[in-house]
Computed example of a mutant assay.
Amino acid sequence: MKHRPPPILLAVAALALASGPARADTGKLLLTGGVSTIAGSAGGGLTPWAVIGSNATEGEMGVSAHATRAATQDYGLTGYGVALGLHDRVELSLARQDFDASPAIALNGIAPFGVTPGQHIKMDVLGIKLRVAGDAVLDSDSWMPQIAVGLEHKRVRPGSIGSVLDFLGTKTSGTDVYVSATKLLLAQSVLVNGTLRYTNANQNGLLGFGSAAPGKNSRSLQPEFSVAYLVSKNLAVGAEYRFKPNNLQALGAAAGLGAALREDDWKDIFVAWAPSKNLSLTLAYVDLGRIVPGITNNRRQTGYYLSAQVAF
């Protein structure tokens, strides 16, 4: 049976399309509004920035939509979503992720947990972001960054892998809270961003939230960093580094699994190209470290990330 988009996804899209004259027409400088993250908010591919998504500036309403595909040696992720920008002040976003876990499951055949072949883990992410200070473009000649606070509420549907999450003692929903500061240095053609996330998500939430003892169940603060260089007005290159909580490793060690449940930091090197004011394409080399290394022979998960965004 085909999965229909959640009603709220359709509602956000309909609201943006119905906004008519209020939609942004000229909008922001190319690429200064970021691209769509895997969670749907505006930023880099892996981490949110303080910028508000879409091309909308002050007094305008804008909308963006994205589709993403990432693949590593043992896993694949497909995602899509929409974001609504209100007056360059508030951003509402919704994204759906489909994580293909079947290759890794096939490697180890964890049948005792009732996991069936061809597993996909699905997760919905509802986000809201509020710009609380600064303006990345207008303050580009000062040291004042643009600052935003946001949250991402995530709900995962693990399918038959739910039995594994039960064993790990993880929850199937959780909320990340973050604050981002973005500094655009127009004269130097450089953008830098720092984000501090308060989270207990395992692998961004795809393996649930928290852990049974002796794993870590409480939230922790995790920093995330991005830097981008504007090669030209429509081309940027950059890198991201996202620290991750390692909630499950202690539980795995206590169960005699050693580092089989270890979680590593994420990083990427990306190229973003905007052939027009309404379209941007992002291609990245990603290194997601080891993802459940106990069933992937301890391989690092490296590969590509490709995302397309349309924004108005």
Rank of each mutant, 00 (worst) to 15 (best):
G59Q: 04
Q119I: 10
A65C: 01
I105T: 07
I128G: 15
I52S: 00
S93P: 00
D74S: 12
G118A: 04
S102A: 08
D100I: 07
Y80F: 13
Q119S: 12
G118C: 10
G34S: 06
G85H: 02
A22N: 12
P7Y: 00
A83V: 02
A14S: 10
L9P: 01
I8P: 02
T72D: 03
G81M: 06
I52G: 03
A22F: 12
A14I: 03
G44R: 10
K28G: 03
A65E: 06
A111E: 14
G62W: 02
G34Q: 02
I52R: 05
L94V: 15
K129S: 01
K2T: 15
Q119M: 04
G53P: 07
P48I: 05
T68I: 11
L15G: 05
I128P: 01
D98V: 12
D25Y: 00
G114L: 01
G109D: 14
Y80P: 06
P7S: 09
A42K: 07
T57I: 14
T57R: 08
P103C: 08
G59R: 04
D74F: 08
G59N: 09
T26W: 02
G59T: 04
D100Y: 06
R89Q: 14
H3C: 09
A67G: 14
Y75F: 15
L84C: 03
H3L: 15
S19T: 14
G43R: 09
A104M: 06
A14R: 02
T68M: 13
A13F: 07
P48A: 01
L92I: 15
G40L: 07
S54E: 01
K28M: 01
N55C: 05
P6H: 13
Q119R: 07
T37Q: 09
A11R: 00
G76S: 14
Q97C: 03
A24G: 03
G62V: 01
G62N: 00
P6D: 05
G34H: 09
R96K: 12
G81L: 03
D98T: 09
D74A: 05
G134Y: 11
D98E: 14
Y80R: 05
G20S: 09
L31Y: 01
L15Q: 06
T72H: 08
G85Y: 02
A70W: 05
Y75I: 04
R23F: 09
G27A: 09
G76V: 06
G53Q: 04
